[in-house]
């Protein structure tokens, strides 16, 4: 009984983990290229959730089709924040860019609070489900996982097969070197920030396909925390590491939930959230540059 439950939860965990991983790729991309930690990360996921919700409820657009819109909105937001704040702070102390990204997050939360009130909302998109006997997988969740994997692959191809992607990889390795090779490093910074934010907003859409309820302006905080755990698991500067970190995190999260639920007197939901924070501290204590990353 418990094993059936556990294996079911673990499978769900892997699928959710794929989406988590995708939701962290933008964070890692931005850190990798600009060496800026986007402390407001979760707020951009929240924006994605509202994009999916609004398009679905107001215009009847199926959530997967909201992805292109989310990408465009995210990239636009990224450009605006990059050119209005981040760009001027890259040479300054780390404190400056941390506070700036944090404030960007607060701005988005407050704007969304004004637009949508702080009431939690949700939508209902029925697409059938796959019954495996020991667990049931709604098609929407599978689609979200497939979408995440596909975006991960596309990002990989873009990095390795296109001129623009190669240029960005050069900047990751050495911005001086890239500059000498005739790459417009400042533009690459803007582009990576904008793509990173775009990916994050898209991940917000995909996450609502997994959990279509509880959408509110302040939902991002817990995703920021999760994204940090995942990013330090996979190596803060590596988008692919982030993807695998997400898979591992999804497993741990759902596995620990199942275990906490067995212990009387514990609130498994809250304990799981505490556990992910404790995990963050332990990983940072052991190896801040990432557990999964090879030496």
């Amino acid at each position: 009984m418990i094993f059936e439950q556990l294996s079911g939860n673990l499978l769900q965990g892997v699928i959710l983990g794929g989406v988590y991983g995708m939701a962290t790729m933008g964070l890692s991309l931005i850190f990798g290229v600009l060496k800026v930690v986007n402390v407001g990360h979760g707020a951009f996921i929240m924006v994605g959730a509202y994009v999916a919700l609004t398009l679905f409820q107001t215009f009847g657009v199926a959530p997967p089709l909201a992805v292109p819109a989310a990408m465009v909105i995210g990239m636009a937001l990224g450009m605006v924040f990059y050119y209005s704040a981040i760009r001027k702070l890259l040479k300054g102390p780390e404190l400056a860019s941390l506070l700036a990204t944090f404030s960007c997050g607060v701005i988005l939360e407050e704007v969304c609070k004004q637009l949508f009130t702080s009431e939690a909302r949700g939508y209902n998109w029925e697409l059938g489900k796959l019954d495996l006997g020991f667990t049931v997988l709604p098609h929407a969740k599978l689609l979200a996982f497939g979408g995440s994997a596909l975006i991960g692959i596309l990002l990989y191809l873009w990095f390795h097969k296109t001129r623009a992607g190669m240029a960005m990889r050069c900047v990751v390795e050495s911005d001086e070197g890239a500059r000498v090779c005739g790459i417009d490093v400042d533009w690459e910074y803007a582009l990576s920030f904008s793509i990173g934010i775009g990916l994050t907003v898209v991940s917000g859409v995909l996450l609502t396909m997994f959990i279509p309820v509880g959408i509110n302006p302040y939902m991002g905080g817990s995703y920021t925390l999760k994204a940090f755990v995942i990013a330090v698991l996979g190596g803060l500067a590596s988008p692919y590491g982030a993807f695998f970190g997400g898979l591992v995190f999804g497993l741990i999260e759902n596995g620990s939930y199942t275990l906490f639920a067995q212990i009387p007197g514990l609130e498994p939901f809250a304990m799981t959230r505490f556990f992910s924070f404790a995990m963050l501290l332990v990983i940072l204590l052991l190896r801040p540059t990432g557990l999964l990353k090879a030496k």
Binding site: S222, V232, A270, R273, F274, S276, F277, L280
Partner: peptide, 16 residues
């Protein structure tokens, strides 16, 4: 940056 990452969840973590 790593310091910021380590502290950002302290309030949430402790609450949960």
């Amino acid at each position: 940056a790593y310091f910021a990452i380590a502290t950002i969840g302290v309030n949430e973590g402790f609450r949960y």
